[in-house]
């Protein structure tokens, strides 16, 4: 074995371990998805053919759940990227107390998802005691019961509050490395804000934007805690995403078979999204 081969063998542990981490649960999930297997009734175990899939795929809530998942991912990414860009540009100016403002802006990113959800649910969105209700009544506007009137939007709001700081954090740093001479040159040439933004800032940030979109897509496709704690997927299925549907239709019934069929479905969806993202976005990340 040459030295190069020896060094290459260093890659083995991470690849093998991640492969096992992926393949063992994955194959067990696929296996269970074809089995009749309920943790509550272990004696009824046996092959199930495609019945688990049939049960899951014919669930009338499934189309809603898939659409909700996509709306969720799409909206949170759009909001956080647009708002993140705006705030990162604002905070680029030097002013007194900028350090404090910066720390305040990124703090929500460190908040636990469960805490985030509880905080918004109780102290802001509660129709009686919540701050939103207080603001509405102060201005004589109708009080909105956020979690039942606008459930999906409420979840989007919570997630955007948490993840816009993530976008700010990344764009902020990226902006620091922008070539200031170029900006000055553009200003002398008479470039306005939009011209500078369109032809200097945006191209400079393209890689960071790709990173933000990619990481957020990974996290938001499997949003669970925020929905679990606040709307529990409701009312009806208005805020149920795929992850939550599997949880409520199968795991709550201890039906490992159907849960696994749902899991396989979720994995396929995630990979379709991943495929398109990697195709379009990951190029900017230049490995």
């Amino acid at each position: 074995m040459t030295k190069t081969q020896l060094i290459k063998s260093l890659q083995a542990p991470s690849i093998i371990l991640l492969f096992l981490w992926m393949i063992v649960p994955l194959s067990m999930t696929i296996y269970f998805s074809f089995m009749r297997y309920n943790l509550m009734y272990p004696e009824r175990e046996g092959p199930a053919g495609f019945s688990n899939y049939e049960f899951f795929l014919t669930d009338p809530a499934l189309p809603d759940a898939v659409i909700n998942s996509l709306i969720l991912v799409g909206s949170v990414i759009s909001i956080s990227v647009v708002l993140g860009l705006l705030i990162a540009i604002l905070i680029q100016k030097t002013f007194r107390g900028r350090g404090i403002a910066r720390v305040m802006l990124i703090s929500p990113f460190f908040i636990m998802p469960t805490v985030n959800a509880l905080l918004w649910k109780n102290m802001f969105m509660n129709p009686v005691y919540g701050i939103f209700a207080f603001i509405s009544t102060t201005f004589g506007l109708p009080v909105i019961d956020w979690l039942s009137d606008l459930p999906l939007f409420s979840v989007i709001l919570m997630l955007s509050w948490q993840w816009t700081p993530f976008a700010i954090l990344i764009f902020m740093t990226s902006l620091q490395s922008m070539d200031q001479d170029q900006v000055e040159a553009a200003e002398i040439e008479g470039a306005g804000f939009w011209a500078k933004f369109r032809y200097l800032t945006l191209p400079h940030l393209s890689r960071s934007i790709a990173v933000v979109i990619m990481i957020q897509a990974i996290f938001h496709l499997s949003v669970f805690a925020e929905i679990f704690v606040t709307t529990a997927g409701g009312p009806g299925y208005d805020s149920t995403n795929t992850t939550f549907l599997i949880f409520s239709q199968a795991l709550m019934q201890f039906d490992a078979g159907v849960a696994s069929a749902g899991g396989v479905f979720a994995i396929i969806i995630a990979n379709i999204v991943a495929f398109f993202l990697i195709k379009s976005v990951a190029k900017g990340m230049a490995v």
């Binding site: 499997s222 992850t243 979720a266």
Partner: peptide, 9 residues
Amino acid sequence: MLPAVGVLM
């Protein structure tokens, strides 16, 4: 991208 809920079982 493997959703946790898919491999929880």
